[in-house]
């Protein structure tokens, strides 16, 4: 399962890069731009976590551009693992939705619609369970299991550069800032990872964490 996902991602990325190499010169004349659907998957977060056993973040995204307005819907699914706080085996299982809109500034320029620059924002709705197993030395009853659950609502602002190739495959590069609006429910330990936002306790502080994260995504997809 894990190998097949990696293989599909590599093939997909390879086709995209191949098309980049075959790209032709853009005409200078203005063209009327069509409305498009854009379907993409995230690579920057997905691939590193896949390298860790049974850990993954899958984040497909569907966008629709009508003239300069870009509407987007993103669904995320994560199951990540890490060792934090001196021998605590951490696991985060969660799902999230991102719904948002943006403006494609390249729409107003004379080009062939293969370079998009989008500024936008998303509402984020995420739900996740954090499980921490603290490993004891020679336990009689077994290791301690700490479980806490959260529903986090928040927003994110992003900037996207999208390069669409000849065969309609595209690459997105998206730096973004996300902010968790709702309070964390964290009776056992500070929330370490908030699904859809990222790591909110980078330095594994024992008393507090952050409400905002800074990140980036690299997406590959197809334009319809």
């Amino acid at each position: 399962m894990k190998k097949s996902i990696i293989l599909i991602a590599i093939v997909f990325f390879g086709i995209t890069l191949k098309s980049f190499a075959q790209d032709v010169e853009e005409p200078d004349n203005y063209q009327e731009k069509k409305n498009h659907f854009y379907l993409s998957v995230e690579l920057l977060k997905t691939i590193p976590w896949l390298m860790i056993d049974n850990a993954y973040i899958i984040e497909p995204q569907l966008e629709y551009r009508s003239k300069s307005l870009v509407l987007s819907l993103q669904y995320g699914l994560n199951d990540i693992k890490n060792i934090i706080y001196n021998r605590m085996e951490y696991r985060n299982q969660g799902t999230y939705y991102k719904i948002g809109a943006g403006i494609d500034f390249s729409y107003f320029k004379n080009n062939d619609d293969r370079n998009n620059i989008i500024l936008g924002g998303n509402l984020i709705f995420s739900s996740y369970k954090e499980t921490g197993v603290v490993v004891f030395e020679n336990p009689y009853f077994g290791n301690a299991e700490l479980i806490q659950e959260n529903d986090s609502r928040g927003i994110e602002v992003y900037f996207t550069y999208r390069r669409v190739f000849e065969n309609n495959f595209f690459v997105n590069v998206t730096p973004r800032i996300a902010y968790v609006i709702t309070d964390y429910d964290e009776p056992l330990f500070p929330v370490y990872y908030a699904s859809g936002y990222g790591v909110v306790n980078v330095f594994e502080n024992n008393t507090s964490n952050l409400n905002f994260t800074i990140g980036a995504s690299l997406k590959v997809g197809y334009r319809f």
Binding site: M88, A144, L188, F189, P190, F203, N206
Partner: peptide, 13 residues
Amino acid sequence: VSELQSFECGFRF
């Protein structure tokens, strides 16, 4: 009762 001591020390039960 579980209490998170610190990054280095982890939890005390």
